[in-house]
Amino acid sequence: MEAAPAPAPWPLSRALLEAVLADRVSDRFVCELIWPRLGYGPDGAGTWSAGPATDAAWRESFPTEPQVIAERPASVRLTRSIAREHKQLLKEQLGFGGYRIGELYPRRTRRATAVNWLLADLARRGEPLPATGPLPPLLAAPADPVAGHPGDRPIA
Rank of each mutant, 00 (worst) to 15 (best):
W58S: 08
W58T: 06
W58E: 11
R59P: 04
E60K: 10
E60C: 02
S61R: 11
P63N: 07
T64C: 02
E65M: 04
V68R: 01
A70S: 15
A70H: 12
A70T: 09
R72N: 09
R72F: 13
R72K: 13
S75E: 08
V76I: 09
V76N: 01
R77E: 04
R77S: 04
L78I: 06
L78R: 00
L78P: 02
R80A: 08
I82T: 10
I82N: 00
R84C: 00
E85L: 00
E85N: 04
E85Q: 15
E85P: 10
E85Y: 00
H86C: 12
K87C: 02
Q88T: 14
Q88K: 08
Q88C: 01
L90F: 14
L90N: 14
L94M: 14
L94S: 12
F96K: 09
Y99M: 08
Y99A: 07
R100D: 13
R100S: 12
R100Q: 15
I101T: 09
I101V: 12
G102W: 10
G102Y: 06
L104A: 03
R107A: 15
R108V: 02
R108D: 03
T109F: 05
T109E: 12
R110V: 06
A112R: 12
T113D: 09
T113Y: 01
A114E: 01
V115Q: 10
N116D: 14
W117N: 07
W117L: 11
L118T: 07
L119F: 10
A120F: 04
A120N: 06
D121S: 15
D121H: 15
D121R: 12
A123E: 10
A123R: 11
R125L: 13
L129E: 07
A131E: 15
T132V: 01
G133K: 04
P134D: 08
P136I: 04
P136W: 10
P137C: 06
P137N: 06
P137G: 08
A140C: 00
A140D: 14
A140E: 15
A141M: 02
A141Q: 08
A141K: 12
A141H: 02
A141T: 09
A143F: 00
D144N: 15
P145L: 07
V146I: 13
V146P: 00
